[in-house]
Design a protein around this nucleic acid. Structure first.
Lengths: 143, 143
DNA sequence: ATACTTTATGCAACAATGATGCAAATATAA
DNA sequence: TTATATTTGCATCATTGTTGCATAAAGTAT
């Protein structure tokens, strides 16, 4: 099961201190083919074909721990997963993740280029480590 | 099972077009005794004592539909619920919900007074209906 | 390449949560 | 108070999150 992402896969796994296994490469390929989108567990399972549910669950967790992916919310309490930007690592995720969820088509898009730092709006005394911003509404294509 | 919240309860349920049942009043009391906090399903169940799981689940949903509560994320894909401000109704929730989740004590606090409208940062063409902002880190008391 | 150590996988089993159908109970309106 | 519509509580099932453990595979040293 060779893929065009193989080199990138190996590199990414190595960079984040994870062993290169067949399953991880496949999962990473799924994410790479959805760059800029936050995808649901369901979408991942469909893309993977035959696979073990628990392994997926654990691999998602290790990807998150190592800073390869991050969790995004679609505004409906359902988790989605998306590739992290360059600056995420094992010790800390990039501090601001912004996403747009379209209530019509159901797509969740990453808005990587949020220009503002939001933490300045938090009351004094709070130490902000991470920020999740989720907009929902209607996307360009559906409007 | 009388409570000091009874009057407020009745009023709120009426305002949002819901029948006044014992269960709804109890649930509303739980929320009223946690004003400013976003609470988990678990916390609610504990506060309620003996109750039916499905009824709770459905009541939470109707509260959300009618704009009494809103869902908040704690940054870990676990849903939390919190009382809405005045401006929420059946057709639309108040458009910006900001919360702070403390990774140490686990509390999720509502930050109702966010001074900024964030939707201006969304790329052209997107129609924003709702915004969820979740900060996580360490709160004042834990720091 | 081989043997060894560590990590990952796949399976069983279970817990927690989300969801639906339906009869009995309750709230509201007439 | 009676009639109507909604809500509750229960049974039941689906989906998702979690752990333990034996086997398999990846990395490492010989």
């Amino acid at each position: 099961m060779e893929s065009s992402h193989d080199y990138i896969n190996d590199q990414m796994l190595a960079d984040h201190g994870l062993r290169k296994t067949a399953f991880r490469k496949e999962l990473l390929s799924v994410f790479l083919s959805h760059t800029g989108k936050a995808i649901t567990n369901e979408m991942i399972e469909e893309a993977l074909g035959d696979h073990d549910r628990i392994t997926l669950y654990r691999t998602l967790k290790s990807f998150e721990d190592r800073g390869i992916i991050h969790i995004a919310m679609d505004g409906n309490a359902h988790a989605r997963y998306a590739l992290c930007g360059q600056s995420c690592g094992a010790d800390h995720h990039h501090d601001a993740h912004a996403h747009f969820h379209c209530d019509q088509c159901g797509n969740t898009t990453c808005l990587e280029d949020m220009p503002e730092r939001f933490e300045k709006y938090v009351p004094q005394g709070y130490q902000v480590n991470e920020i999740q911003v989720t907009f929902s509404g209607v996307c360009t294509q559906c409007a």
